[in-house]
Design a protein around this nucleic acid. Structure first.
Lengths: 133, 133
DNA sequence: TCATTTAAGTTGTATATACAACATTACTTT
DNA sequence: AAAGTAATGTTGTATATACAACTTAAATGA
């Protein structure tokens, strides 16, 4: 199997992510939250309580990258941790109320992406995702 | 259509890109080049000569992001531009010789990703990509 | 139990990215 | 041709990411 440089999947998935993130930002930036931070909030939102290393595993994020994201989220007042060295994170009161605004915005972003991709595009994405497990 | 937060495609494509880029870095970092920079080199390599704004369009990169990448690539001595304000870029002598090392490394990265994804995964990826055009 | 090793979190440093604002060139219109 | 407009490139600022090195806590074993 021989590949041509135009096939570079790393470049291509980067392009796709920039396209998708541009759509997301359109809905999220009015709330002053980034796509990365909202991803983490969603993980905590669904788990109620979750350890930091578990978030890193779920999102396949390097420890140090996540560490800095957590600092930013905490500075924004949306999350809180217990006092352990291996902290368990949860949404703060403010974070819970913030989610009431984030979820609809996020849903709108998903809807716009979905309208672009269509049912077949989604199916393809899921198969692609599964192939990399 | 109602979405669940776990379906967030932005988060999921981010995870996939981090997985793929980790593989790429394994092959590219010994050459002291990043995935982003190699993507741009590949575009120039294939076009021989290409305008800066065209690169931005191809890679769906914001003007300013690309501008800084070009500075880094030029500082590394791999690319050169004409003296226009809208520069036309090409590989330098050093860049051409560097590509002789980059292309095999890049091909090895592609091979490893390909062995993970399989034929079906690739087909799915291409369909997913097409759905976002 | 204490020492050693492993795991998890943070900090230093560098690249990557986007948006806003600005600068410069190119293009249009009169 | 000059003025005005649009397109392109760069700089300021902030977030995001990874690796290496360091720190600290947890787990293991002698």
């Amino acid at each position: 199997m021989k590949f041509s440089p135009t096939e570079c999947i790393s470049a291509r998935i980067g392009i796709l992510q920039r396209k998708i993130n541009t759509i997301y930002r359109k809905y999220l930036s009015p709330l002053n939250i980034s796509e990365s931070q909202s991803s983490i909030l969603l993980v905590i939102y669904q788990s109620k309580e979750v350890g930091q290393s578990e978030i890193a595993t779920i999102l396949n994020l390097e420890r140090s990258s996540l560490s800095r994201n957590m600092v930013r989220l905490e500075k924004n007042g949306w999350i809180q941790k217990n006092e352990s060295y291996h902290p368990i994170w949860s949404l703060s009161k403010s974070g819970k109320s913030f989610m009431k605004a984030v979820l609809p915005a996020w849903d709108n972003a998903m809807k716009e992406v979905n309208s672009l991709m269509g049912t077949e595009g989604w199916k393809s994405f899921k198969n692609f995702e599964k192939s990399l497990n």
